[in-house]
Design a protein around this nucleic acid. Structure first.
Lengths: 229, 229
DNA sequence: CGAGCGATTGAAAAGACTCAACCACCGTGG
DNA sequence: CCACGGTGGTTGAGTCTTTTCAATCGCTCG
């Protein structure tokens, strides 16, 4: 369980850093990074940033999960991405000069570090490896979103749910998937009621186990088959 | 009308270049660019690159339009983006190291220049302005796609069509919108028949004019209202 | 002039959503 | 310790949008 206080994380010993954009940093760079970042504890459902505002820096997740979403006309959330430990989020609109096109808030209690805009941009100028890592990351996400769009446009809700569960399984790793039905519906892109009915189907087909709110995937192959390629 | 031959375009006089990633280039840079690029004439419906293959360079549109799309499970295209003169496409997967996640082919006869991968990457290393332009472009597209996803997930086909027509109006500028019904349906993300019925509605509501295959927007405000924000 | 592709229309079926009601769990305060 | 309120989860029924399938039309290119 997480410390319910302002836990200070040190970049040098941060286990999430290895898989992050800063994973290739050398010793002196890590020390610099550590000076520039601020560390914060977030409760569940706290916002990191909100659509329409301007970025003041980037967020690096040490522990916890964060949903990245937009709101449609009626205010309904569409979850675009779920970030986990090691992910760095919020840099997109720093580069485009636009306000945030998405919002982000915690799904669990989390430890999240913050790096100010100027510091981060300076690092980018001086560090080709970081820069290339970011370009690569942007490019990869762009490709993912092309597929996401196609899924939304062409797959049935049932197929999308299967697809989403596979993604969630990757994100949650060993842990059970733990989201409100509403958040899950907003990730799949459907109504909460429809999601619940489909989860029940999947459970009856022995594809998943439902432990009240938490989900466990029992039959990955079936999911793959339902999701389509 | 376009020359039906291998027309050679010179970067220095290329009118499309001004609005492109290379718009800020100085005289000597333009000369270099001109040496590195190859120019080609494409007929309608010719592929530039195909999902799954690996990139060998980038394409810079001098004249014409290109659809960028993925195929869903059943082979149905989903058009992600329509590129016009001045747009540079195909650089995403050069950075991510992945194969193309999308395909691209011409919608009209087009003049398109090609810049080899090595040349382009070298330019990027040596030219911070180009580099920042690309980062900005990647970031902007990423934001656009977040909205695209939300539209797909939450808007009705009718709303999406209105939205799409506004985008197409921007792309086609003074020209009339000129797409097959199927391509348009694949852009909106619906069945061709549904698209046709909705176009008829819009025509009856005096929102658009239909000249056989070509479309003209008559009442932009109504479209805005239907599309939602 | 004919083949064929793209456009159009109609009718039926399916998938998903909305609305309304109800349940179950959890933390709070009396 | 228990009743209460609230949030999140579940179920059912009816409706509506959208898709699918089938058939027809019409234009254009060889």
């Amino acid at each position: 369980m997480l410390e319910k206080s302002h836990k200070h994380v040190t970049c040098a010993t941060c286990s999430a850093r290895k898989n992050s954009l800063f994973g290739t940093y050398g010793e002196s760079e890590v020390i610099d990074l550590n000076h520039e970042k601020m560390c914060n504890y977030y409760k569940k459902n706290q916002p990191l940033f909100i659509e329409g505002s301007f970025p003041r820096g980037v967020f690096c997740l040490n522990q916890g999960k964060v949903k990245v979403f937009t709101r449609g006309d009626e205010g309904k959330e569409q979850i675009i991405h779920i970030a986990k430990a090691g992910d760095v989020i919020g840099f997109r609109s720093m580069f485009s000069g636009e306000p945030y096109k998405v919002s982000a808030s915690t799904l669990e209690e989390s430890n999240i570090c913050f790096i100010g805009k100027d510091d981060f941009l300076l690092m980018m100028d001086n560090n080709p490896t970081l820069r290339n890592g970011i370009i690569k990351e942007l490019s990869k996400e762009l490709g993912d979103r092309a597929q996401f769009i196609t899924n939304m446009a062409q797959k049935s809700v049932r197929e999308r749910l299967a697809f989403s569960l596979l993604i969630l399984a990757d994100i949650y790793g060993e842990e059970e998937i733990n989201l409100t039905r509403e958040d899950m519906a907003n990730f799949v892109g459907t109504a909460t009621e429809t999601l619940i009915r489909l989860l029940k189907d999947f459970k009856e087909d022995q594809i998943i186990e439902i432990h009240t709110r938490k989900l466990l995937i029992v039959n990955r192959d079936k999911l793959l088959r339902i999701a389509g390629r």
